[in-house]
Design a protein around this nucleic acid. Structure first.
Lengths: 155, 155
DNA sequence: TTGTTTGCAAACGCTTTGCATGGAC
DNA sequence: GTCCATGCAAAGCGTTTGCAAACAA
């Protein structure tokens, strides 16, 4: 299987805003207006914004929001397992609501991160039997130049 | 092919201290005592130390060394293509002298990073034809618990 | 001698924390 | 009414930078 439409993947696999909110309530978290806005912002977009990006996007329309709250909320969502943290750049974490294994295509020029397909070549049992390492999560990051940047810069 | 002895991989694939020094000279870089010490420290070990770890290890035996120099030297080595930067944790970059494609086994308990095997499932042409993304580098990071930590903590 | 590299210290950017206020339950 | 979440500001931490001194070539 090789699904090559990333928006389709997101629509099928990623939890919706309502599902995330429901999960938070189930876990005993309080659903504040700020958290609702952050979840809506994250669940609705196909890219993988950083905490700062989310803050900048939300600030004009969200009353009473500070950056620390964005960080705290994202941390909560990561703990809930509904959001994945991508340490793409040492100085800018990105967040992803797509829990299925996939390749992150990271553009080194514009910094965009998009999803692509799935990865099945590395199996937990293979690694465990070999070196005793218990795999919990697989991150595949493909660094390069995205189509848009390739078209813009003549390189 | 599946080479499962990571030390063997390092010995075969990773450039030696002398090779790295030679490469620096070839590129017109000056070989200072600090740079020599940093290269020796990095080339001789199978793990993937951070800049701070290198600094701490070298400080007792290296006269006149500061952390900025470690960062500068590592940056130079990355530019030369002889060292790879691994953004494993948002607040602690790791450096790797193994240029061949492989899986980084990252232990979420002790922070150790070891190499494992090779990865061939994702091909640049496949991605290029699909979404126009020009792949330059593939990073595969497997997060989990290493054998030593599994044995220590009863989990 | 020349120009790169170093040490030092300060700056920088992202992230976390402490505490009083505010709001969800 | 309780207690968790927020805002604010300051601190924390890794990393980078500016500049004069040191040193490889």
């Amino acid at each position: 299987m090789n699904t090559n439409n990333l928006e389709e993947i997101d629509r099928i696999m990623a939890p919706s805003e309502a599902e995330i909110i429901a999960g938070m309530k189930r876990a005993g978290c309080r659903v504040t207006s700020q958290r609702r806005a952050i979840v809506a912002c994250l669940a609705g977009r196909p890219d993988h914004p950083s905490a700062r990006q989310i803050y900048r996007d939300l600030r004009p329309t969200t009353s009473r929001l500070c950056l620390a709250t964005v960080y705290n909320t994202l941390s909560t969502l990561v703990d809930l397992g509904v959001v994945r943290e991508i340490e793409f750049d040492a100085a800018d974490n990105r967040y992803d609501t797509n829990p299925s294994p996939h390749v992150n295509l990271v553009c080194v020029r514009c910094g965009s991160i998009t999803d692509w397909g799935d990865v099945v070549s590395v199996t937990p049992s293979e690694i465990r039997n070999d070196v005793g390492f218990e795999m919990e999560e697989l991150r595949v990051e493909c660094r390069g130049v995205c189509a848009r940047c390739r078209n813009q810069g003549a390189d």
